[in-house]
């Protein structure tokens, strides 16, 4: 199975998480390298810092980032979570405690 094929499986299964997604203290969703996918809203996205070949690695918003050397915390500017998901730093809105 190719890397991409494996990823597809993970993607499908990643969405089939058994528990309700909880945010680790440090998660991809809080990292400025994370881009939430816009064709979904199930917390999947791309990491712009880690590549597979030329393309970005798929990650989830609640992927634990405590060991990630590329983690760069986003600026959380707004506090109104009714704002849209990509603003201002591509910040997915759910499950992140506002600062």
């Amino acid at each position: 199975m190719s890397d991409w094929e494996q990823l597809r499986q993970q993607w499908l299964q990643g969405a089939i998480s058994k528990g309700r997604r909880e945010m680790p203290e440090k998660a991809c969703a809080m990292c400025s390298n994370f881009r939430q996918n816009s064709a979904s809203a199930a917390g999947d996205g791309l990491c712009t810092a880690i590549k597979i070949g030329e393309k970005n690695k798929p990650v989830f918003d609640n992927t634990d980032a405590s060991d990630c050397p590329h983690y760069k915390e986003i600026d959380r500017v707004r506090t109104d979570t009714s704002e849209f998901m990509w603003d201002p730093q591509f910040r997915p809105q759910r499950q992140i405690e506002e600062k």
């Binding site: 190719s2 991409w4 094929e5 990823l7 597809r8 993607w11 499908l12 881009r35 996918n37 816009s38 064709a39 979904s40 999947d44 791309l46 070949g53 393309k55 970005n56 798929p58």
Partner: peptide
């Protein structure tokens, strides 16, 4: 999802 080559999915989900 399975109709698309896996590496293309990345592009398609970006919007």
């Amino acid at each position: 999802f399975n109709l698309v080559p896996p590496e293309e999915i990345v592009k398609l989900l970006t919007g």
